[in-house]
């Protein structure tokens, strides 16, 4: 073991944890079933039926194989492949997210460059930012009258704040020296913004974008549970209603993996724009 690098040792440990965890889970299932069989009430309500029990990992793996071998099948409104559901969620997240970026980054730039704008807008941002994005849902549904657009709006509203605040913070914190270099070279305001302020603030801005995409992916599940129809959030809720816990656990894992992929993509962008002073 001593000859292995830190990464290799971590990999081995991760693998052991996975196997150990799955084994414990698998082993814990029969005991649980036996315990629930005893309650009279559960028998009466039917909750003790075999399908309602927490499924063992082996069953989840079979389900995953089933779903992933045909992710894009479409058999009516309540029976679509996991790939289609994830695609719907990603479409909503990315639409809301990019609309938010389109507004947050330029506005953040202006706020960051102007101390007056910073001070004037700060109270609004401070009040609006802590509002749970789902609290906007009823208002959105009433005004927009479209469940899909309302979900996109909720994503928009939750991703705008970290990007706005980080952009403003990054732009305001650009070193005066670099601005002075731009000034001594007679760069105009647009050129200065693009060639000096943007690259200087990029690491902070991208950090904000990374936080936003993470929040957006958290929120979409809850939003889709509310608005229904399509999407991974709706899928989880629908399978719960079907008491298909195997599918619920499988979709939870899918949510995690997609979220990780989104985060990794922004992590790569972050590394690309990073610089050492």
């Amino acid at each position: 073991m001593q000859q292995l690098s830190t990464n290799q040792r971590a990999l081995v440990l991760s693998f052991l944890l996975l196997v150990g965890g799955l084994f414990l889970w698998e082993a814990a299932i029969p005991a649980q079933k036996a315990a629930s069989e005893l309650t009279e009430y559960e028998k009466l309500t039917g909750a003790g039926a075999p399908k309602a029990g927490v499924p063992p990992p082996s069953q989840v793996l079979v389900k995953a194989w089933e779903q992933l071998s045909d992710p894009f099948y479409d058999a009516g409104p309540n029976d679509k492949g996991i790939g289609i559901q994830v695609a719907y969620s990603l479409y909503r997240v990315l639409t809301g997210y990019f609309l938010a970026a389109l507004i947050a980054i330029p506005v953040g730039f202006l706020i960051g460059m102007s101390p007056v704008a910073y001070k004037a807008l700060n109270p609004f941002i401070q009040v609006l930012r802590p509002i749970s994005p789902l609290a906007w849902m009823p208002l959105a549904l009433f005004i927009i009258q479209d469940s899909n657009a309302s979900a996109i709006f909720v994503i928009f509203i939750c991703s705008i704040w970290p990007m706005l605040i980080n952009t403003a913070f990054g732009v305001a914190g650009v070193r005066k020296d670099w601005i002075n270099v731009a000034r001594t070279h007679e760069l105009g305001p647009v050129k200065t913004a693009l060639t000096v302020i943007l690259p200087a603030a990029a690491p902070t801005i991208v950090t904000g974008m990374r936080i936003s995409i993470g929040i957006a992916w958290l929120v979409i599940v809850a939003a889709e549970m509310l608005v229904g129809g399509t999407g991974i959030g709706y899928y989880v809720w629908n399978e719960w209603n079907n008491l298909d816990l195997t599918s619920v656990i499988f979709s939870i894992l899918v949510i995690g993996v997609v979220g990780m992929a989104l985060d990794a993509a922004f992590g790569a962008v972050q590394r690309a724009v990073a610089y050492a002073e």
């Binding site: 670099w178 002075n180 270099v181 001594t184 007679e186 690259p199 200087a200 990029a202 050492a276």
Partner: peptide
């Protein structure tokens, strides 16, 4: 009344753009 390309400056702390 403002900076100009006619006046070149070597700053005390170099002021290089670290990303370039």
């Amino acid at each position: 009344s403002g900076p100009s390309l006619d006046r070149g400056v070597v700053f005390q702390n170099y002021s290089l753009m670290p990303w370039l």
